[in-house]
Amino acid sequence: MARLDYAVNALGYSASLGRLVGLTSRGHYWWKNPSHVVLIDTKGVVNDLGPVEAQWFRTDDVSAGAVVGTTFYVRDTARLHAIDIDPASPTYLRIVRTVVLDWPAMMLDDFAVNPVTGQLTGVSAAGWGPGEVVSFDPVSGRLLSRTEIPALPGKSTYGAVIIDAAGTIYAINNGYQGSSRLYRITGTTAVELSTGPQMGMIDAAGCLPNPMPPRVEPPAPRPEVPVPPAPAPPVPAPAPAPVPVVQQPPPPPPAVTTPPASVPPQPVPVRAARQRPEPREELPVAAETTPMTKSRKWAIVTVILVMLGAGTAAARARG
C-alpha cells in the first residue's frame, strides 16, 4: 500500500509497461489546468508522463478507465476518449478518438478489459432494479450486452471492477447499507466476499502479477591481476628435404640365342700347315731391247722441264 499526495482516477493496468496508468491534476488546479497521465508501480512510486495534449480535457468528470494494448480508455461523462500511451508513437499522449457511449454504459463508474471477449465490461446500478453487468465496444461505444444480476444491490455505484483470466468479475459497491461490499460475479450469480468501511471514491486497475523478486546486486569485480604472457612455443626446425630416390631400371635379361633346330652345325675347316719360306732367288736383268736408249730418255725429260719453266715465267709476266 502507498499513500499519494493527490487524487488519481480512471486507473488501468498496462501489461506492456508493467505499471498502473491513471489521470491526475497533480500540482495543478483541476478546473483550469489539463490532466496528466501518470504511471504508478506496486510500491506507489509515481512517474508523471505529462499532460494530455487537449486543452479542453479535465479530470473533473472522468470516473472510469482501462488500458487495451497501448491505448488508455477513459470515460468523460457520456464520452469515451482513447489516449495513446505508446512512447514511440507520433500521437503520444494525444486523444486519438472520441465516441459517445450508449445507455447505460455512459453511467459506469469503472470498467475492465474482459480477456475472454476483448470487450470493456463494468457494473451499472442505474435505475431502480438490481445491478447489471454491461459490456460495450471501446472503438464504437455501442452497447453489446447487459445482464441483470439479482444478488447485486442497485441504487449505488460500483467504483472498482476487475476481471481475471477466466472471465470472472470482481466488483466493489462503494456503499450499500453503510458498507462497501466486494462481490464475485460468474454468469448471473453474484457472491458477496467481504465488507468494509463505506467509501466515497474507489477505483481498481486489474489483477496485477505477482511481486517481482528482490533485485540481487552482482558481486563486486575482483581486482585484476596481471597475467604473464604465456611463453611462445618453440619454433620447430625445418625438416630436411627428402632425398629423391632415383629408381634404376632393372637390367635387361641376358639375350639367349638358340640356334634353329633345323640348321645342322657346320664343320670347322682345317687350316693347312704353314710351310717354311724358301730363299728368294735373284732374277737376271735382261738387256734393253727397245729402240729408246737411256740417253734418249734423259733428253725427253730435259725438254719437258724446259717447257715447264717457260710456262711458269709467262704466268708471272702476266700477273
Score class of each variant (00 low, 15 high):
Ala166Lys: 14
Thr70Met: 12
Gly27Asp: 13
Pro233Glu: 00
Gly69Ile: 00
Ala317Ser: 11
Asp5Trp: 09
Leu152Gln: 06
Tyr92Trp: 13
Ser140Pro: 00
Tyr158Asp: 01
Ala166Asp: 14
Gly175Gln: 08
Ser89Thr: 02
Gly122Thr: 01
Arg58Phe: 14
Asn210Gly: 10
Arg296Lys: 11
Pro279Gln: 04
Asp110Trp: 02
Val38Asn: 05
Ile172Lys: 07
Ala315Val: 06
Asn47Met: 06
Arg75Ile: 02
Ala54Cys: 11
Asp76Glu: 06
Tyr170Arg: 12
Ala315Cys: 09
His81Ile: 00
Pro253Val: 05
Thr293Ser: 14
Glu224Gln: 05
Thr186Tyr: 09
Ser194Met: 08
Gly22Leu: 07
Leu39Tyr: 10
Pro264Ile: 03
Val225Lys: 05
Arg26Tyr: 11
Val263Phe: 14
Ala315Met: 13
Gly22Ala: 10
Leu93Asn: 08
Ala204Leu: 11
Arg97Met: 04
Lys32Trp: 10
Trp128Gly: 06
Ala273Glu: 11
Asp84Ser: 06
Tyr92Cys: 02
Ala317Met: 09
Ala125Ile: 00
Gly129Val: 00
Ala220Asn: 09
Arg3Pro: 09
Lys297Glu: 03
Ser35Cys: 14
Gly44Ala: 07
Ala78Phe: 07
Ser262His: 13
Thr77Ala: 15
Arg316Pro: 04
Ser179Trp: 02
Tyr13Ile: 00
Ile163Glu: 07
Gly27His: 03
Arg19Ala: 04
Gly154Thr: 02
Thr147Lys: 13
Gly44Val: 02
Gly167Leu: 03
Met292Gly: 02
Pro233Gln: 00
Pro238Phe: 00
Asp76Leu: 01
Asp5Ile: 00
Val301His: 14
Arg215Trp: 12
Val301Ala: 11
Val100Cys: 07
Tyr170Trp: 08
Val99Gln: 01
Gly141Pro: 01
Ala166Cys: 08
Gly309Asn: 10
Gly44Met: 13
Ser124Val: 05
Val227Asn: 08
Ile162Pro: 04
Ala273Lys: 09
Pro269Lys: 04
Arg276Met: 09
Arg19Thr: 02
